[in-house]
């Protein structure tokens, strides 16, 4: 690391005109941004809406307005980042009284279908701009698991299944900080999430699309 710093310092000091042309840290002293030299951090908290897809849609067919995402990342100088992400997703749908056939039984009930998800994933992101940039679009792939709680109420009786299941979540997004090296910024993200969970009315697996927006903060 020292030799790299020495090298960069040497380059910066010897090729002054080039450095001035190259460095757009708005009147900075010519030293590179710490974001470009060290492992730095970013945390983000976002609110989101979730659109059910596939098997999830067969269980609950409406857009969820109650979702929250929390993400922490280690930003590496080479435009990629490793992170952890969690959050909370909740969706609910009430169906009018209907008769459902379960085996030989006919069950007449008002169903209240709920699905709660708490993801716990590791992410790998590639940014299309350096760590100090004002505008940082990225692609991300996250994998890990999610705690899923499927509770379908028949009237007041609960048909429940829960557990920690495998999950993947590729995403694209943009972080915008206003200007170079600024800490506080905004972020939007589109995330496809597929949890390998199925139970009764939720067939195959539980995919969904989450559109989220919130604040992002980088620091070192």
């Amino acid at each position: 690391m020292k030799s790299i710093i020495a090298f960069i310092t040497l380059i910066t000091l010897t090729t002054t005109t080039w450095a001035q042309y190259r460095n757009d840290n708005s009147g900075n002293n010519g030293f590179p941004s710490p974001y470009q030299e060290y492992v730095t951090f970013n945390i983000a908290a976002r609110y989101g809406v979730v659109f059910p897809l596939g098997g999830t849609k067969g269980y609950i067919d409406n857009v969820s307005p109650t979702n929250f995402a929390l993400e922490g990342e280690w930003l590496f100088p080479k435009r990629f980042a490793i992170g952890i992400k969690t959050g909370y997703q909740y969706n609910k749908q009430r169906l009018d009284r209907q008769v459902y056939e379960y085996g030989d039984q006919s069950i007449s009930a008002v169903q209240t279908r709920t699905l709660s998800v708490i993801p716990a994933m590791v992410s790998l992101s590639y940014y299309f701009a350096d760590n100090a940039a004002a505008l940082r679009p990225y692609v991300q792939f996250a994998g890990g698991g999610a705690y899923v709680d499927y509770t379908n109420y028949f009237g007041t009786l609960a048909d429940q299944s829960n557990g920690f299941k495998g999950a993947i979540a590729p995403a694209i997004g943009v972080k915008y900080y206003g200007k170079r090296e600024q800490g506080l910024g905004a972020e939007i993200q589109a995330q496809y999430q597929n949890i390998f969970f199925n139970y009764d009315l939720l067939k195959n697996s539980a995919p969904s699309l989450m559109l989220s927006a919130g604040i992002s903060y980088r620091f070192y």
């Binding site: 109650t66 007449s108 209240t112 709660s116 509770t151």
Partner: peptide, 26 residues
Amino acid sequence: VGGGLLSCRENAINDLSPADSPVYIT
């Protein structure tokens, strides 16, 4: 935030009317 949101499911059937509560199994 997580703790607050986790209570969502617990409240899911709080608004169920008396006529909607019973389940008839035949």
